[in-house]
Amino acid sequence: MKTPLVILLCAMLSISVQAQHILISKTASISFYASTPAEDVEAKSDKASSVIDTKTRNIIFKVSNTSFQFPKKLMQEHFNENYMESDKYPASTFKGKITDDVDLEKDGTYNVTIDGSLDIHGVTKNYQTKATLVVNKGTITAKTSFKVTVADHQIKIPTLVFAKIAQIVDVKISAVYQPK
């Protein structure tokens, strides 16, 4: 008899706790850029989703790999088919936490450090990055950039096209969070 009661209690508690502290962005933008001797590779997605919990300072990012738009469509096809293997690994995810003790319910600009794990191509790696958060009347604007080493995520590039594809990719992220 006790256990269901406890679960119910917990569920109720967690519902009441989460509601006000969760901000969400459905149109977060992620772009990456890599320069190679042969050509520049760049792509952007405006369809990333992100959610931030101002209480726990947990943050999650998720983007569908097929939502990245390349200026060269053939490159986009190769990106999905040969490198990201989007049919096997449809999304890339970042799960992290803001390590600084900041109150994200107060307006202001915060330079913070985010610690977390990035899952690309089914391979998870720990990352730490600096981010800027601007809190303004309940909405948060976030910006960050970091570097991803392609080999870290076991994305194999055949030697034939080696020169065309960079080993280190600059990733830029921006998101505007609204209360749920």
Binding site: I7, Q18, S49, I60, K62
Partner: peptide
């Protein structure tokens, strides 16, 4: 439970991100 609820819920909030 609270902790794990928070984590899971946070991911649930994202909903289905697949187009």
């Amino acid at each position: 439970t609270l902790q794990s609820f928070g984590q899971q819920d946070l991911e649930k909030e994202l909903g289905n991100t697949a187009p």
